[in-house]
C-alpha cells in the first residue's frame, strides 16, 4: 500500500465551505413563504366564523346566497318588522299618536347615513323627542341587540328606509354597518336619548 495514501484527507473532510446556506435556497424559501401567504389570503377566509369550505372568503359566501343582493334584505326585513316592530310602530308605520312615533316619512328614518338608526334599534330609545313636529317620550323603545342579528337589523332598517308605501326613500343598510356600530356600543346598557343621538354624527 502506498503510505502516502494513509495521510490523505478524506474527500468529504476537506475545507468547509464558507457560505453554508446557498443563496438560491434562501430565495426559494422567501418565495415559498410569499406563495404561502398569498394562498392563505385567498383560501383561508381570514378565520371568519362564517366562511366554510368550499367557500374561500366572505364575498364568495355572499355571492352564493340564494336571494343575493339587497332585494331580499327588504323581504327579510318585512318579516322581521312583522314580528318585532309592528306591535308599537304599527303595520302602516304610522305609530300611535303620543306614544309611538311614526316611521313613515320620519326625518330620523330618512337620514342619508344610518348610524343613529342602528343605535336606536340596538340599544333602544327613551326620553323626549320630536318626530315630524310632534312630541313623544311617554314610552320607551326596547333594545334589540340581544334579539336580532346584524343581518336582521340591516334587513329591518332597509325595509323601513326603502318602503315606498310609507313615503320613505333612503339608502339600504348593510349587515357590516350594523356590526361596526354594534362593536362601538358593545358596553352600553342604557337606551339612547334623542339629544345624545343628535350629538353623534350619523355617519359614525
Amino acid at each position: 500500500m502506498d503510505p502516502s495514501l494513509l495521510n490523505a484527507p478524506e474527500a468529504d473532510e476537506m475545507e468547509p465551505k464558507k457560505d453554508v446556506v446557498p443563496v438560491w435556497l434562501i430565495v426559494l424559501m422567501v418565495m415559498l413563504l410569499y406563495w404561502g401567504a398569498v394562498y392563505f389570503d385567498r383560501q383561508g377566509g381570514w378565520f371568519s366564523p362564517q366562511v366554510y369550505a368550499p367557500y374561500r372568503n366572505l364575498e364568495e359566501v355572499r355571492a352564493y346566497q340564494p336571494g343575493g343582493g339587497a332585494g331580499d334584505l327588504f323581504e327579510l326585513g318585512r318579516s322581521v318588522y312583522g314580528q318585532t316592530c309592528v306591535a308599537c310602530h304599527q303595520a302602516n308605520g304610522l305609530g300611535v299618536a303620543g306614544q309611538f312615533p311614526p316611521l313613515a316619512d320620519s326625518e330620523w328614518v330618512n337620514e342619508p347615513e344610518p348610524g343613529r338608526l342602528i343605535r336606536i334599534v340596538l340599544a333602544g330609545l327613551q326620553g323626549p323627542m320630536t318626530v315630524k313636529g310632534q312630541q313623544y317620550g311617554a314610552a320607551t323603545m326596547t333594545p334589540f341587540a340581544p334579539i336580532l342579528s346584524d343581518q336582521q337589523i340591516a334587513a329591518v332598517l332597509t325595509y323601513v328606509r326603502q318602503n315606498a308605501d310609507w313615503g320613505n326613500k333612503a339608502p339600504a343598510v348593510t349587515p357590516e354597518q350594523v356590526a361596526a356600530v354594534r362593536e362601538k356600543i358593545a358596553n352600553r346598557s342604557q337606551p339612547f336619548t334623542a339629544p345624545e343621538l343628535l350629538s353623534i354624527s350619523p355617519a359614525e
Partner: peptide, 20 residues
C-alpha cells in the same frame, strides 16, 4: 384560544337567513 376567538361568540339566531 383561536377557536374561541373564531367561533366562541356564536349565538342563537345570528345567522339564519330567509326567515326571522
Amino acid at each position: 384560544l383561536s377557536p374561541q376567538v373564531q367561533l366562541g361568540r356564536q349565538t342563537q339566531g345570528t345567522n339564519s337567513v330567509n326567515t326571522a
